[in-house]
Simulated scan of single mutants.
Amino acid sequence: MKIVANNGHAVDKPTARSEQPGVAKTGGGAPAVLGTVNAELESRVLGPAQEALAALPEIDQAKVDALREALARGEIGFDADRLARLIQRYHGAGR
């Protein structure tokens, strides 16, 4: 199967890396030591951020209400055709 990048050029198959003696590998091929370091880093650094993110509501209803009111008052415009073009471009229509 040929893999093509966004620029239309073929993506080269990665070359095999040389093995380092005495370093255990995980199932994904990364050294086991890196897996431990990454897990510790994630728990120490990203843990609090993930907890804060989980505590936030999925939708900021106050912002939704403010935008809805601004649209109703005509303070901001809405271009449905532009939105449709952006959605098509994002999802790759017309390629």
Rank of each mutant, 00 (worst) to 15 (best):
D79T: 05
V4L: 11
A52Y: 07
P48A: 02
D79M: 09
A39R: 11
G47C: 06
P14S: 07
I87Y: 10
N7A: 02
P21H: 01
D12T: 10
L46N: 13
A5Y: 01
T26C: 05
G47K: 08
R95A: 15
N6I: 08
Q88A: 13
Q61T: 10
A32L: 12
A10T: 07
Q88H: 09
I3R: 12
N38I: 01
N6K: 10
D79P: 03
A55V: 02
L53K: 08
T15V: 14
R44G: 00
E40T: 07
G27K: 08
K13H: 04
A24T: 14
A52R: 12
S18F: 04
G77Q: 11
E69S: 15
L83I: 13
A55I: 01
I59E: 13
V11H: 03
I76Y: 02
D12S: 14
P57V: 01
P21A: 00
T15N: 07
P31Q: 02
A5L: 04
A10Y: 07
G47S: 07
G94I: 08
A30M: 12
K13G: 02
I3S: 10
Q20E: 12
A66F: 03
P14H: 08
E51G: 04
G35E: 01
N38T: 06
V45I: 14
A55P: 01
A16H: 03
E58F: 07
G92W: 04
E58H: 04
L83M: 15
R95N: 13
V33D: 09
L34G: 04
I59T: 15
G47I: 06
G94H: 09
R95S: 13
A49P: 01
A39G: 07
G22R: 02
S43C: 00
N38W: 03
K13E: 13
Q88F: 11
D65C: 06
G94W: 09
G22K: 02
A80F: 04
G8C: 05
L56A: 12
V45R: 06
M1S: 13
N7G: 07
P57F: 01
S43R: 15
T36M: 05
A32V: 08
H91N: 15
A62M: 03
A39Y: 02
A39W: 01
D12V: 08
G47D: 05
L34K: 02
A54Q: 09
L67W: 05
R68H: 13
A93Y: 15
A70H: 01
